[in-house]
């Protein structure tokens, strides 16, 4: 996906806000993710030039970290914890259920672009596992039916928002 001029101005602002930091690249990429929900391909040479890096270096960093996505993903990030403490409480079954009910695999978004499903390795809620993170909210002791409830709540909130806007 390309960037139009408006986006470039926003990108410039993001870079300017972080340029005086020590080691600004990760904070810049987090800010770009927060604004554009991915790291647009065209942004890479711009970030590289402003930070006095090569495009290869920036691309290398983007591809190294799970948080940075090269393509646009669904509006809400749904993460299922796959770590041992969650496995001990049934996260493997939860994982299978989630993929089936959302009709996506890990790393994919639903057809309506509402949900992006991915694995996560520990949310620090291990005493009340299995855990699921939806955007910045963490949910404990999530059963398959509990998962369906979380998703239907998410859909209905979005439905209301869409109707009211």
């Amino acid at each position: 996906m390309g960037l139009n001029l408006d986006y470039k101005a926003e990108l410039d602002n993001i870079i300017r806000d972080h340029i005086d930091m020590e080691g600004p690249l990760l904070p810049v990429l987090h800010a770009v993710m927060a604004r554009f929900s991915h790291i647009p391909k065209d942004a890479i040479p711009i970030i590289a030039r402003k930070l006095n890096l090569s495009s290869a270096e920036v691309s290398g960093v983007v591809s190294f970290y799970h948080d940075f996505k090269k393509e646009k993903v669904g509006r809400h990030k749904v993460q299922i914890c796959r770590s041992e403490a969650c496995q001990a409480m049934g996260s493997r079954e939860l994982e299978v259920h989630a993929k089936k009910s959302l009709k996506v695999d890990f790393g994919e978004s639903t057809n309506d672009d509402l949900i992006f499903l991915e694995p996560v390795y520990c949310l620090g809620n291990c005493a009340c596992s299995p855990s699921v993170r939806i955007d910045d909210e963490i949910h404990a002791r999530v059963t398959p039916s509990g998962f369906d409830k979380l998703i239907s709540d998410l859909r209905s909130v979005n439905h209301h928002k869409a109707r009211n806007s």
Binding site: G23, P24, L25, L26, H30, E57, G60, V61, Y65, H66
Partner: peptide, 24 residues
Amino acid sequence: RLGAGAYICGEETSLLESLEGKRG
């Protein structure tokens, strides 16, 4: 400073690379 979802960045030298803005 926020990490970006890489387990290896808990290793101290990888963490330092990451803080410097590099691959961990």
